[in-house]
Design a protein around this nucleic acid. Sequence first.
RNA 1: GUGGCCAUAGUUCAAUGGUUAGAACAUCGGAUUGUGGCUCCGAUAAUCCGGGUUCGAUUCCCGGUGGCCACCCCA
Length: 450
Amino acid sequence: MPRKANKKAKVNKTKKEKKTKPFSRLRGMKDVLFDDYRYWELVIKKANDLAKIYSFKRIETPILEKAELYERSSGKTSDIVSKEMYVFIDKNKERVALRPEATPSLVRAYIEHGMFNLPQPVKMFFLGPLFRHEKPQSGRLRQHTQFDLEMFGEASPVADAQLISIAYNFFRELQIDVQIQINSIGCKECRGEYVKKLLSFYKERGKRSKLCKDCKKRLTKNPLRLLDCKEQSCIKVREGAPQIVDMLCEECRQHFIRVLEYLDELDVPYNLNPFLVRGLDYYTKTVFEITPIIDDEKEVKRQISLGGGGRYDDLVEFMGGRPTPACGFGIGIERTILKIKEKNIPLETREKDIVFVAQLGDQARRKAMMLFEELRRAGFNVRQSFTKDSLKQQLEEANRIGAKLCLILGQKELLDETILIRDMDSGVQEVIDYKKISSEIEKRLHNEKK
RNA sequence: GUGGCCAUAGUUCAAUGGUUAGAACAUCGGAUUGUGGCUCCGAUAAUCCGGGUUCGAUUCCCGGUGGCCACCCCA
């Protein structure tokens, strides 16, 4: 009986308070709000500048592609494709995917637009969102943004080294300390030899039983990935395993050595990591990852990578193009911003020389709106809030945005053909001739700079 | 995908099995109808969702959702 009464009360309550439920974002998706966007501008500017200097041209490709594109290029067994890709059937019953990485689309574009007819190498710059259905945490989103550079039609180790050096400079110039992890996984031929040897190593007595579940699968599906398993028991088994750098064919060995030599000369610090193999099928020869250098030793283990890439000499042909050597890398914008925030690197200070135009009364407002346009065209950094009626609110706004000067136009000034000019720092204001506005502003801004 | 911790105004944080869930910052209004910053006064604004235990749940329990962290993997 009392319970019933309670339920009734509850129903009434919910009826009374029933509001439309506010919508919320999808999990793992982030809005970039005003303050955050200042970091984006900083990072994107750096990306743009570097790309331009090194002659990479921007390209944009659709976010939606055939699912098969990624299955073929990145490999059906790769984690990105098998576990994380957003795949669905569209209205034409086509299997489509939200792009989980940039390279396959860029390879597709290179082939589809016959870019082998352009002067080689073709250097591309990509900046856009990628989608992976991961379990989100900080630095891991379901939609993230990558800055990608890819170079097609260049087999020289100079290309590898240059890309790595660009990536390195990107971070260094944003004042983020990073380290390059680098390895070579050889070409079809020498990797084939190596995998055979690796497998025979793992077939030695009792080793298989010590491996984790995933590694047992890797034995048949993707043996190279045995090398970078983080499972303790697997790491133990791995000791004494043959290393691929020792088994590279002459061409691959020379290539790798030269990449390292160039890096030495460019003063790019790197760390040879024989266990770095990366999770995508298409890599050949050079592979690398960029990780932050962390002061706190306890944290060393959980360093997330800020970027990665490598060479993929067989992919263009494999995807139906002419044989074309290529290499590239991607950098995570959100993770980069996270690092910048961690380091408390100060952002650029407030805008300079803001002139605020304030008005009182409708007549004055009309004239002020015209004045605003004139000043804007004359190149002044003007601001306004013409929707506000009270002068108090307008000055408040001027103060908030850090205006240097405020022009005040009211009925009185309208009749006298004058205007008030107020210095926002000192609070001193003067009546000046309306016709002399420009020169008076100029004078005051100029004085300030001295 | 697996495991751990968590969920209160816009934000950061309080409090409580029982009258009205409290503060700071932010926002809006006023003190000041033609003058911002400082001050004072006031207002708006929250217990994630669903179920259970209970006379009574925001508090305890279960489930969901979301967040953080670790792992897997990656940017």
